[in-house]
Amino acid sequence: MTMSDSLVLVNTVDGITTVTLNQPDRRNSLSMSMLEALSGALNQLAEDENTRVVVLTAAGPVFCAGHDLKEIREQFDQTDAQQRLFQLCSKVMQQIIGLSQPVIAKVKGVATAAGCQLVASCDLAIATTSSRFATPGVNIGLFCSTPMVALSRNVSRKHAMEMLLTGNMISAERAEQTGLINRVVDDAALDETVHSLATTIAGKSSHTLKIGKEAFYHQLEMGLAEAYDYTSNVMAENLDAVDAQEGICAFLEKRKPDWRGH
């Protein structure tokens, strides 16, 4: 799968699809047009059976600076336009979670406000030592309320509140400590680290990954007893799948499984 919207580039190699935010001159800000392009790419990926893992990255020195404040300023008196912008942004974040494929954020540079939200919305995130993260809306009088949703579901309550209330930038090392990202690597090691992780995941049953990702996010919103009831049913249904039975047989027979994707 290869697609170019100029704002978002999409390329698939060996089941790994890289989605690149491609407006470095605007710091890859999530303008209405960027969000529309990203949403369109995610819609296509949702139907793409050849994609097993998605890597979300960005061109240039900034991963994503959040919303385009110049665009927002032009819409100060257009409440409907403002609502459409934030609703579309929220839709894109939910599209990422709703994808059957795991999504890895590959971060180099700054990710602030809705850009930080984008990282938090991905299933996994790898960042370079030079990367920085912030939800600085409070500094300009616009609290990062929608970024807060993703942030507060990834890091502890007090760490999230500190970022939201101070607007301060945190280092990649601090982001790893709080759970916002999985790992920090040197700039030179970013490509290989992400590719290795993506390749490992791509080697699993796509059907199993789909079941597991969906169940993970569903059970997070449940009480303990309800979560166990739900996941018990998920596992029983999963066991009926061809790939589950093949995987168990392959393990017992000490051979490599032949995944069928169902």
Rank of each mutant, 00 (worst) to 15 (best):
2 T>L: 09
2 T>Q: 08
5 D>R: 14
9 L>Q: 13
11 N>C: 12
12 T>G: 02
14 D>R: 11
19 V>H: 01
20 T>Q: 13
20 T>K: 09
21 L>R: 08
22 N>M: 08
22 N>C: 14
24 P>V: 11
25 D>R: 13
26 R>N: 14
27 R>K: 14
30 L>T: 02
33 S>C: 00
33 S>A: 13
34 M>W: 01
34 M>L: 11
37 A>F: 05
37 A>N: 04
38 L>P: 00
39 S>F: 00
42 L>G: 00
43 N>Y: 06
45 L>G: 03
48 D>F: 00
49 E>P: 00
50 N>H: 11
56 L>C: 06
59 A>H: 10
60 G>V: 09
67 H>Y: 12
69 L>Q: 08
70 K>V: 11
72 I>D: 06
79 T>Q: 06
81 A>S: 13
83 Q>Y: 07
84 R>S: 03
85 L>T: 02
85 L>I: 08
91 K>S: 09
97 I>F: 00
102 P>F: 01
106 K>F: 02
106 K>L: 01
108 K>Y: 13
110 V>R: 13
114 A>F: 15
116 C>G: 04
116 C>L: 15
118 L>E: 03
118 L>Y: 00
119 V>F: 07
120 A>E: 08
120 A>C: 12
124 L>M: 13
124 L>E: 00
128 T>K: 04
131 S>R: 08
134 A>V: 11
138 V>M: 08
141 G>P: 10
142 L>D: 08
142 L>F: 13
145 S>V: 13
146 T>D: 09
148 M>C: 09
151 L>A: 02
151 L>D: 05
152 S>D: 01
155 V>N: 03
158 K>T: 14
158 K>S: 15
159 H>N: 15
161 M>K: 09
168 N>I: 00
170 I>S: 08
175 A>H: 03
175 A>W: 06
176 E>V: 06
177 Q>S: 14
179 G>W: 12
179 G>C: 14
184 V>K: 06
189 A>Q: 14
191 D>H: 07
193 T>Y: 07
193 T>P: 02
195 H>M: 15
196 S>D: 13
200 T>A: 06
200 T>W: 03
203 G>W: 05
206 S>T: 11
206 S>P: 04
208 T>A: 15
209 L>A: 04
213 K>I: 10
218 H>L: 11
218 H>E: 14
221 E>W: 05
222 M>F: 14
223 G>C: 05
227 A>M: 06
231 T>I: 15
231 T>S: 14
232 S>W: 07
233 N>R: 15
234 V>Q: 05
235 M>W: 14
239 L>C: 13
239 L>H: 07
240 D>S: 01
241 A>K: 10
250 A>E: 07
252 L>W: 10
254 K>N: 12
256 K>W: 01
259 W>A: 12
261 G>V: 06
262 H>F: 03
262 H>S: 06
